[in-house]
Design a binder for these strands. Sequence first.
DNA 1: CAGAATCCGGAAGGATACTG
DNA 2: CAGTATCCTTCCGGATTCTG
Lengths: 139, 139
Amino acid sequence: MTARTAVPPPAAAAPHAESRDAYQADCAACPTNRVLDRMGDKWVGLVLKELAGGPQRYGELARSIPGASQKMLTQTLRRLERDGLLSRTVTPAVPVRVDYELTPLGLSLLPVLNAVTRWAEQNIGQVDRAREAYDARQG
Amino acid sequence: MTARTAVPPPAAAAPHAESRDAYQADCAACPTNRVLDRMGDKWVGLVLKELAGGPQRYGELARSIPGASQKMLTQTLRRLERDGLLSRTVTPAVPVRVDYELTPLGLSLLPVLNAVTRWAEQNIGQVDRAREAYDARQG
DNA sequence: CAGAATCCGGAAGGATACTG
DNA sequence: CAGTATCCTTCCGGATTCTG
């Protein structure tokens, strides 16, 4: 998640801030942005796609997504659990067993994620070419 | 955009023969994540939706999105321009006039953005309830 | 008008070490 | 096995000031 300001301090009235704060309450923190913010978290997409195939244990996820440190993986899982997108099931045993699984809410987000993936795969080439052209014009 | 590590050029190869770094090149920086990263930028969603209604001048955008500082608005517009999602047209005059407009590529992204918006509006309630429940269990 | 340049606090994310 | 705790670096995003 980017450093999105939680909620503006009540009386922090700077010169031009009044309308800005009110606006943010309406738009910057609107549902769309909140969801985009969560989906934009570095490892959320990968975790969601990984769990789309079915429940997985912590270790499995860690091996499937080696790029994520255990700190980031855990943080990502915790946030998604808090948002109700996945469930965490602890099985007391020796050693402990923890399974993660998408909730119905999490499953309902998959089509959206797939829409992004489809657009990305089809258009990333154009984006790259646009970047090259832009950078060529002026570094 | 989050601090997503830039990754070297594409070197498609067998999935399992690759090291951790190579894995990141394939997945952490895959098209989906690159697009999610850009869409997750704090003001990208609002700018895109604002320009969905047609071309706008810099000042209009600034007034439409008062939550964004000039720096962030400009930075957002520059990045979207670099990615080929919008065009920037400077009309030499006194004073200068600059218009921003979605490119066909940018327009093609709107349905995806709308899909996110639709999901968000329909499910943000569940997310909020899930959070309350989670926080109630343990702060 | 439409920005560029600068300073700054703080959040994000990674690496490492330790634990029930 | 599945985390927690800690430290550290990067850099995002806001505020302010200056310019063609």
